[in-house]
Design a protein around this nucleic acid. Structure first.
Lengths: 347, 347
DNA sequence: TGTTAGCACTCAATGAAATGGAGTGCTAAT
DNA sequence: ATTAGCACTCCATTTCATTGAGTGCTAACA
């Protein structure tokens, strides 16, 4: 059996209606409220075909049809017409507090949540490579050393280091010189034993301090990126009857609480072909495609934002499968453009 | 009418039972399952009195009684016998990752949530005073300055500062000297125009750099503490039928999402008399006592942890009014002791 | 041959009525 | 002062009939 033009139109009508109402949709509705001018009986026949083809499902014998995951997928892939969302208001708010990145991201999450009525999460940026650009050791008090490390992406890390006994100013200057000349430009992977040995040789005395300092540096570089996740509107989930069952809702909202799941989420394989939108990398995951068990009744739309080369994070919107893909993708698209601008200016 | 010994015993029995079941409790239950050896009729009479006194409420004519806020309050204030909770397991976990404070706090939230089955929040520490202990300016690249500020509580802040044109090394040394001698030990409030003027005089040239640097310092000191809030187990709310109504649940869980409400919460007036437990400052807020509208059907138990003098944060547990106060207070108590230890060692 | 009207059938949802039971208040007896 | 007993109330649960949206199938039609 083939999926001819008419079947497609009917499928589209079914999905559209279902997105609206969340109720199974029957043949009569389609017959009346579509421009096909077909009787309900005809629609019924077509629907039977569509069901056989796996695009729609009948929850029980005498009910209407609802889209299957396969149906949604087809809809998202081929039938979505891109509208440009309305993201005017956010822009100003963001530019005001252009300072702190975490504020911005939190704001973005909140904006999307209130505008779409779904739950949202925004992950903080990850840095792809971490190389040392500059190291400085300073003696703050007699028995406290401050280690400051500047990475090549201008991220600054610091760590206090308690000392057994004071260390001479002269020695600190020497240490700084050695560390900078030896380590600058190096990745953590490059800091092998040979390099460490080389440093130690030059220091002679105070080798144990070098140990501590190198340990701090190592930790800093390897350190799991703090993997901040900003969420908002998780309770929107409760607005959709098909998700608001207590166990389901608890699972979904709980997942938002567990930052760990973001790991999985960030690692989701990109769809073949690069997703809906090449520039902003917008992707849609339906039901089990999310790979997260507790999300099997949800859909998830993600986008990737880039702050600069090699520094990117993700934005995700989670809602019921019947989420308004059209609006979500539209909003995300226009939001991403705004973000691009803002980050460009910031730099 | 007086609240004699027997009435008190009965009230206690009613509340205990209600905490367990969440159902209105009737006279017969108390008569059977308490050691009072009274018939249900007698209990009924006493219950009528207790109701008149405002300690219990009858949801409808032919139902049992449930405790009123006043009843809970009496219970919490006078009838709670402190048990020592079981907090063995947490200790080890915490000591492992003793490094990062935010990890610890998140862990604490999670621990409490899973152990009590209520929703929990832990606020990051606030610093009462912020004085400058040490300032350092460094030139990282030709046109980039790094400003590092160490506060007297050993918190380190840093900020990159772009430059118009390079600045001589010599000048930086001088700047560092001036800044440290002038500003060390100063609070932000002390940094008035006079001080600033004094610095500028000493610098002469490069005054505009001083401006930028001072701005950075000012921002750092004034900066709203990031007011981190770690939450866990918010979905536990859904486990209690009296809270899991969709609107209510959404309000409560939503409140956990809004960091803003933590502001109010942190500012809650201490109860007269210092709360249940002098050492750890454990406080119980019942229903409207929380001052947060969306929490009017909840109770909230809070404790204050101290990392060092003047650096403290709060831990809160939110559940239904019929929460197991006994266990919660017990657990909190013993947790706080553990935390005290850990923070002491860290220092 | 594709479309449609018509009809019998299914089944979830809704609502009304019946039932059961937990609990109370009151009274009279102990 | 306590208790047994009884009538009464009211919520919760079950039962049952009804409704209506929706289907599949068949026969008629263009």
């Amino acid at each position: 059996m083939e999926l001819d033009k008419r079947k497609l139109k009917i499928l589209q009508a079914i999905i559209r209606t279902y997105l609206d109402t969340g109720e199974p949709v029957g043949s009569r509705t389609i017959s009346k409220y579509s421009d096909l001018n077909l009787s309900s009986a005809t629609i019924r026949n077509e629907m039977a075909d569509l069901e056989e083809l796996g695009y729609i499902i009948q929850p029980h014998t005498s009910a209407g049809r609802i889209p299957s995951d396969k149906g949604y997928r087809l809809y998202v892939d081929t039938m979505l017409d891109a509208k440009s969302g309305e993201v005017e208001s956010l822009r100003e708010e963001l530019e005001e507090k252009a300072g702190k990145l975490d504020d911005i991201l939190q704001q973005v999450a909140k904006f999307l949540a209130t505008n779409t009525n779904y739950a949202t999460m925004v992950s903080g940026p990850r840095y792809q490579t971490k190389r040392v650009k500059f190291i400085q050791i300073t003696s703050v008090e007699d028995e406290q050393l401050l280690v400051v490390i500047v990475l090549d992406n201008n991220v600054v890390k610091n760590q206090m280091l308690p000392l057994e006994k004071p260390i001479e100013e002269e020695m600190i200057v020497k240490l700084n010189f050695i560390l900078n000349t030896t380590l600058n430009g190096l990745d953590v992977l490059d800091m092998n034993l040979a390099v460490i040995q080389k440093i130690k040789e030059q220091v002679g005395k105070h080798a144990q301090i070098i140990d501590s300092v190198l340990e701090v540096i190592g930790k800093t570089l390897v350190e799991e990126d703090d993997l901040e996740v900003y969420t908002s509107g998780t309770t929107n989930i409760l607005k959709y009857p098909e998700l608001s069952d207590k166990t389901k809702a608890a699972e979904i909202i709980g997942a938002f609480e567990e930052k760990q799941i973001m790991h999985n989420w960030l690692g989701l394989p990109q769809k073949d072909g690069g997703g809906l939108d090449e520039t902003h990398d917008i992707q849609v995951y339906i039901g089990n495609e999310t790979q997260i068990d507790s999300m099997k009744d949800c859909s998830m739309v993600t986008a990737t934002y880039r702050i600069q080369e090699g520094v990117y994070g993700k934005i995700g919107i989670v809602g019921p499968k019947r989420m308004d893909y059209d609006k979500v993708v539209g909003t995300l698209n226009s939001l991403m453009s705004q973000l691009d601008d803002i980050f460009k200016n910031k730099k």
